[in-house]
Each structure stands twice: as structure tokens, then as C-alpha cells.
Write a protein that binds this DNA or RNA. Sequence first.
DNA 1: AACAGAAATGCAATCGATTGCATTGATTAA
DNA 2: TTAATCAATGCAATCGATTGCATTTCTGTT
Lengths: 341, 341
Amino acid sequence: MAQKPEITIHDIAKKLKISASTVSRALKDNPLISEATRHKIKKAAIEMGYRPNVMAANLRTRRTNTIGVIVPLINRHFFSSVISGIEDVAYNQGFAVTISQSNDNLEKESTIAHTLFSNRVDGLILSIGMETQSYDHLKLFSERNIPLVFFDRIVDEIPAHKIVVDDFGGAYRATQHLIEQGRKKVAHIGGPLNLQIYAKREAGYRKAISDAGLQINENQILHNSLTREDGLNAIKKILKTKERPDAIFCANDTTALSAIIHLNEKGIKVPEDIAIVGFSNEPFSELVTPSISTIKQPGFEMGQKAAELLIKQIGSKTKPKNYETIMMETELIVRNSSQQK
Amino acid sequence: MAQKPEITIHDIAKKLKISASTVSRALKDNPLISEATRHKIKKAAIEMGYRPNVMAANLRTRRTNTIGVIVPLINRHFFSSVISGIEDVAYNQGFAVTISQSNDNLEKESTIAHTLFSNRVDGLILSIGMETQSYDHLKLFSERNIPLVFFDRIVDEIPAHKIVVDDFGGAYRATQHLIEQGRKKVAHIGGPLNLQIYAKREAGYRKAISDAGLQINENQILHNSLTREDGLNAIKKILKTKERPDAIFCANDTTALSAIIHLNEKGIKVPEDIAIVGFSNEPFSELVTPSISTIKQPGFEMGQKAAELLIKQIGSKTKPKNYETIMMETELIVRNSSQQK
DNA sequence: AACAGAAATGCAATCGATTGCATTGATTAA
DNA sequence: TTAATCAATGCAATCGATTGCATTTCTGTT
């Protein structure tokens, strides 16, 4: 399609009767070039509509100034907050950010990782998908020493910086809160245990229950992919169990939502009959009736931190001696789904 | 950072004692290469962990097989649906997609456009930001014949394919629906008129009112950026006007939400006292109490269509003779905010 | 056995920017 | 005036893959 001739530094050089090297240096504000020529060159560049060909530069310098980001779904408030945090830091440091979503699908995640690698991103920030249990596509990066930072859904096996929230603590707090409301039989809708975050949330939940000297009913701990539909099936199953629980701690807000909607329809009162707490503080959680008590995660700050660590690592010549796992604090937000007015 | 030697086609060639050209051709399944050598080469490539350097290839071929996407906010359900639609088509056709958000900020939009251009994306799909009133950063593309497709928030001045929804019709339908509910005084919370979509929504609203022989109260047509906060200010302002309206057509769901929350707090009943219709069918619209009647836009399909048109244009040698503007149908979804049970 | 024609492979230039090293020109010191 | 010094610029190789054209190797035919 492109017919208008591409303007290159050579075109500028020819027009100004100087060498391409000088043009290149001038445009990069290299101090070797005199003020006068630099001005002349920049002026010409603008007049001629010069646009650097990043690929040529990248090929030569072996750097792209681009950070790749892979998230399961850009559509989740938590993830888009993280992305905004990443962009915030990256743009200020002159990095471009390219965002991709895996849709929680391993194959797509792998394809994206390979594409990003082939495009030679300088570093990768990611949160793995629910299906992801093999990590060849990620070893690609760590083996070649391309900086990698995980956030939220991390992988233990791969050495890298990791940014997580205190899932255990958050879940503990959430469950404790339900118990403080006088609940004795707390059920749990949890995520796939291959993801650490869900294992930890469940562990926090279990600890809170046993610390309070209460019993766990193993029939009332369910695992699924935490979609709207999964949540609906889960709440139905829970309602069919022998001793109906008086509270549910859900591993995300989506399933909390499903539960609430179903209970509303069934005429079971939330929180009077069954109290509910979710996780993530999705925007909708304050909009439903009753509004959902939940655990707030500092998404934006996690993104900032992840980008900082990554960029620091990109800038350094050597592999970091040790990798940090940064745990950020969560906050319990009490709303109407767990507390009577 | 990268110390492990990069494997190039030359390394493969050396090892197999053949030429790099043959390796290149074999890896691209060029029929010139015999079955036997091709196999040998592919095997070696895998064993050696070869990963093509896309930048080098792109530099040579002047194609990147990458589509750039710019949206105001990835966080909006409508936009992320469109993105999913784009990805759906693009991936199947072997294109990568790089997504960026402008945050409705002209400067950022312009920076992103320049970055994408410098990275030589093969084409661009975008929806402009609220601030965008100058188009130099977009002319960059059209002038150099880099295919460009607009969706939703389009720019008339620039020749390109455009995918829109029937904003006029949707708004007309929404307003008409309010009138059918017996409402006589319908206010409007609208967006910035420099964006065609909002101008059209307002026009549709006006037409429906006058077609019904009703009066418009110009004090009750407000314009703002349609954020939560803007919506709150707008509803407050509307409540202070002389003749309180009995319905409001909001140009998006966000402001409809603000209005509903504020009216709930004030004890003004929705829909009994004031009926409300929004626009876009954001997921939260069915979750609030009362649930929000709204206009549904086919986001996924718009994305698919945009990607199809773009890729077709990328593949063609010549400029399209005429540019299409495809208008997709909207659907009124009646919920509780506009209809008494 | 010889040769046309096809099939397979190689050569070398190219894409556009960068950069180590060489060169030019100007300035300064002696 | 001349050599030494420094500032400014140019030369040419390089990054890795692609591709038009040339060359080599087969294959089959007579």
C-alpha cells in the first residue's frame, strides 16, 4: 500500500549534503554534533516528515524499548488497573507497552509469549491463565535472560520477581469477619488450586475457621473456574447440602455476584440468612443489592511496582542475585452482603 | 542482559553446511526447497532453539503483520468486546494485535499513534478520545496509505472505513420508549458534541421528542464527559431546574448509574418519579437496583468487521476506491429503570 | 554420452539505523 | 610556523532475514 516514499536518515543526509551518521547522531542529541548542524538536521527532519524506522534501530541495537504484558482478561477491573499502573511507569521511562489477553487459555498464552519473544520485547510482565500448568513458553524468557516479572497469578518454579497480594491474609480477614458476625458455618467457593492465589485464599479461609474453633464441612468447599456460571452452579450445589451454611466466602466477586443473584431469586435473604464476602473489589460489587463485601487489592500500585522492577532489571547488565517476592496488603471492605444494617 | 547466543538462520546454515537462503526458504515452506532439506532444516531449527528475529524480517519485507488498536479505555465493556472481536479475526489471519489506551487524552493518543507508526504497524483500528479535535496524528497514517479503520468514535474528515452503530436510531428508540411509558418531560445528559456519536444521540433524542409533539426544555439538556462524577453533577443540576423532568435519556450507562444512585439517595423513585434509559449495555447496568434500561451495541461484531475491512485493505495493493461506513443495528433493552413492574 | 530443461541451492544486495574508528578542519601552544 | 590537540564529521561494517538472479545438480530423453 505505502507509496509515499519513506523518508530515511539518508534522505535527510543527501538533502543536507552531510553523512547519515551525523544525521543519526544529531537526532539522538549526541553531543558530538555541533549545535548548528543539529538544529539544521532537526528542522529538515520535521519538514520532510521523517519518522524513524524503529525496526531498523531495534535490529541494530538489540533493544525494542517495549514491555510485553499478558493478562488473562483485560476486561477485569483488577487487571486493567494493573495495566494502567504498568503504563504509568513505563511511559515515563520511555517504554512502550503492548498488552495481550490470554483468555485463560494456555494455547493462546503460549502463542502470545512466542510472538512477544520473536518481537524481542525487552521484558515481560504477566499473570498466568487458569489452565497454565506447563511453563515452556515462559522458560523461553528466563533461559535467555529476558527479564520477567509475575504478578498476582505467579509461578513458583520460575525464578523471577513476583508481585502478589496477601491472599492468605485477605482470605483470613474475610472469613474472620464473617465469623465476627456470628456465623458458624462458612462455606467456600474457590478457584483452581494449581493457581497459588486460590490455594492461598483457601488456606487463609481454613485457618480462620480452625482458629475460631469452628468446623469445616468439606462438602461446602467447591472449586471451579469462578465464572458467573460456575458461581451459579456452586451456590445451587451448596444449597443442596445437608446443613445449609450461614455464610460463604467466595474467591472472587464474580461468584459472589452469582450467589447473591440466585439467593435473591430464591428469597433467601443476604446477609440475614447467608452472609457473603467476595474478593477483588470489582466495580460492580458496590452496585448490586446488597452490595458485596470484598477484599480490595491495590492493582494500580502492583502494576507500578512490577514495571519498576522490570525496568530496573532491563537496565542492569547482570542477572539479579536474588529475586524478590513483594507482597502487597489487602483491605477488607465491609458492605451490605455481610453486615446487617 | 541477553547472554545466551541468539540463534540465527546463519547458525543453522553453518551447522548444516548449506546457505542461509536455503534455510530461510525452508522455514517459510518455500516449494523451491526439496522435501528432504526442508525436514533437515526444520529439525535443526527446533533442536537449536531457533526463534526468528521478527524485526529483521520486518525490516526487509516492510511488513509487520501487526495491527495497532487504540481505544479510549480498555476497561469499558464495550471497548473490550470490540477488542475481542478484532483479536478473533486478526489471530485467525496471522496478525498480531497491539492494544493501547488513550485515556481520552489527546496527547497520549498522539504519542501512541506516533509510536505505532514508527513501529510500522500494517494498519490501525481506533476510536478517538473525547479531547481529540485535531487529527494530525491520524493523517500520518492516511497520508502514507497505511490502512485505517475507525469504529464508534469516528472522524468525518479522514477518508477511511468506518464502523458505527446507529446512534441516532438507538437514541430515538430509547427516547420514544420513555415517551411510550407516558413521560412528557424527558431530559438528556449528553456527551461532548465534537464526537459524532454524542451529536447523533442528541439528535435522535430531539427528533423523538418533536415527533411526539412534546417540548424540549433546553435547560435540561446537559453536556459533559460522561464520567461518574459528571453524571452526579448533571443529575443535581437537573433536579434544580424549574420543571422537574419525569424521565432522562443518558448518553451512556455511567451517567445513568450516577443519576440512579443519586435519586435513590434522595428518595426519588426510579422509574416511578423519574424513568431512566442509558446507552451501551455495560455489565453493571443489569446489576444495579433498579436495573438500567439501555441500548445494546454489538461490540464483538463491530470488532470483527473492523478487522476484516482492515485486513482486506492491508492485503490489497491499491487504495480502495470508496470507503464504506458500516452502520450496525442497536437494540433497546428494557429493564426496571424505565418500566414499572 | 550428451544435452535440454527442470529442480535445488547459493550469492550478494537490501531493508534503515547505529557506532567504532578514521579523517578532516580548526584552534592552541610553543 | 609547526606540531599537537580537540571538535566535528564521515566511512563502512553491522544487526538478521529476504529475494532476484546466477549457478549447480539432477532427471530424463535421444
